[in-house]
Amino acid sequence: MRPHTLTRIGTILELRQLRAFVAIADHGHYGRAADSVGLTQPAITQRIKALERELGTPLLTRSARGVNLTSAGQALIEHARRLLLIEDRAVRALHDHAKGVVGRLRISYLTLWDFGPPANIVAEFRRRYPAVVLEMSTGYSQANMDRLVAGNVDFAFVGVSIGERRGIAIRTLDRHEMVVVMTPQHPLALIDRVPIERLRGEPLISVPPGVNNSLVAASLSWLGRHTGESPTVVREEPPDQIAAALMRTGNAIALMTVHRAEIAQKDGLIYRSLVPSPMIEYGAAYFRDDPSPALANLLEVVDEVAPALPDALPEGNELIWARPGSATGVAG
């Protein structure tokens, strides 16, 4: 490897020569200076001679009391210190970048998953790697996956049912129970745990496919299998509008996660568990071959903050959507 050099009007200054010069100026002694930079005394002497030869002027003088700077040496010393500081900072920055402790990561939250692992993962990553700039956004699963495929984000929280794409991995991080939500006046409100068969023929408000195409299809298919007929979808609304739509219709129902259902209670709605209890999985998506050290560090944080889920589901639970070939399905 060629030594780092600075060139100006035919003069070539090697940073290793400047480092030797500064070490001698600091220690006032060739031997101690050589030890400080890991050189022998003859080697550091040769570097100073080469530097003086290149500059065409003496930089140091020896006396019985030690080594002193000449006037040329005094003119150079502060500039040499600054140049070495710049080199040290540059090398440290490259080292930090290689270790993933600096840089940039673009992360997209999942709009419907605003608590638990996502917030914990990002908070822990910020704590460990404060110099990494995080560019945060949010979106539904379909939009987040599209952004990842397009290269607009590096890491996205998604519903696992969105499905993997070529080159993209999805880690399952959490499972959420789905419940039926309705107005307090709805007949199903009188039942503590609603048998899924009781949803047959009930007017249903669903989310549009663009939120998560595969989950919407899987949810309707799951309901159809358990009720014996296709669900009666009376309208489609974005997730953040379903509560208001339920209040306006009065007689319709909707499926939500427990977390979203608890929020809907503030709008005057109630929810009931289902038998069997449907569950959905949330996770994180990223490119398998992304070489980013910062992403590698984020994935280590994911492993620690959100350890692998057990294969078995709680008794009486079923996944609405499971990965093809997955052993996880019906439990109990």
Rank of each mutant, 00 (worst) to 15 (best):
Arg8Phe: 11
Thr11Arg: 11
Ile12Met: 08
Arg16His: 06
Val22Pro: 03
Ala23Ser: 08
Ala23Thr: 06
Ile24Tyr: 04
Ile24Val: 15
Asp26Cys: 03
His27Phe: 12
His29Cys: 01
His29Glu: 05
Tyr30Cys: 02
Val37Glu: 07
Leu39Tyr: 11
Ala43Met: 02
Ile44Asn: 09
Leu51Ile: 10
Glu52Pro: 01
Arg53Ala: 03
Arg53His: 03
Glu54Ala: 09
Leu60Met: 10
Ser63Asn: 00
Ala72Arg: 03
Gly73Met: 10
Gly73Lys: 05
Ala75Trp: 07
Ile77Asn: 05
Glu78Gln: 13
Glu78Leu: 14
His79Cys: 12
Arg81Glu: 05
Arg82Pro: 00
Leu84Asn: 01
Glu87Trp: 02
Glu87Val: 08
Ala90Pro: 00
Arg92Cys: 03
Ala93Met: 11
Ala93Asn: 11
Leu94Val: 04
Asp96Ala: 07
Lys99Glu: 07
Val101Gly: 06
Gly103Gln: 07
Ile107Asp: 05
Tyr109Cys: 04
Thr111Ile: 10
Trp113Tyr: 10
Phe115Trp: 14
Phe115Val: 13
Tyr129Ala: 04
Pro130Tyr: 07
Pro130Ala: 06
Pro130Asn: 08
Ala143Asp: 07
Met145Trp: 05
Asn152Arg: 14
Val158Gln: 13
Val158Tyr: 09
Gly159Tyr: 04
Ser161Thr: 00
Ser161His: 00
Ile162Pro: 08
Glu164Thr: 15
His176Cys: 07
Glu177Cys: 00
Val181Ile: 14
Gln185Thr: 11
Ala189Cys: 04
Glu197Cys: 05
Arg198Leu: 14
Pro203Val: 03
Pro203Thr: 07
Ile205Phe: 12
Ser206Gly: 12
Val207Cys: 03
Pro209Asn: 14
Val211Leu: 14
Ser219Asn: 08
Thr227Tyr: 11
Gly228Lys: 10
Gly228Asp: 02
Ser230Trp: 06
Pro239Trp: 09
Gln241Met: 13
Thr249Gln: 13
Ala252Trp: 01
Ile253Gln: 02
Met256Tyr: 15
Arg260Tyr: 12
Ile263Trp: 12
Lys266Gln: 14
Asp267Leu: 09
Gly268Tyr: 09
Leu269Cys: 12
Tyr271Leu: 09
Arg272Gln: 15
Arg272Phe: 15
Ser273Asn: 05
Ala284Thr: 12
Pro291Phe: 10
Pro291Ile: 13
Ala296Met: 05
Leu298Ala: 14
Asp311Ile: 10
Asp311Leu: 08
Ala312Val: 06
Pro314Thr: 11
Arg323Tyr: 00
Ser326Pro: 00
Ser326Asp: 05
Gly332Ala: 13
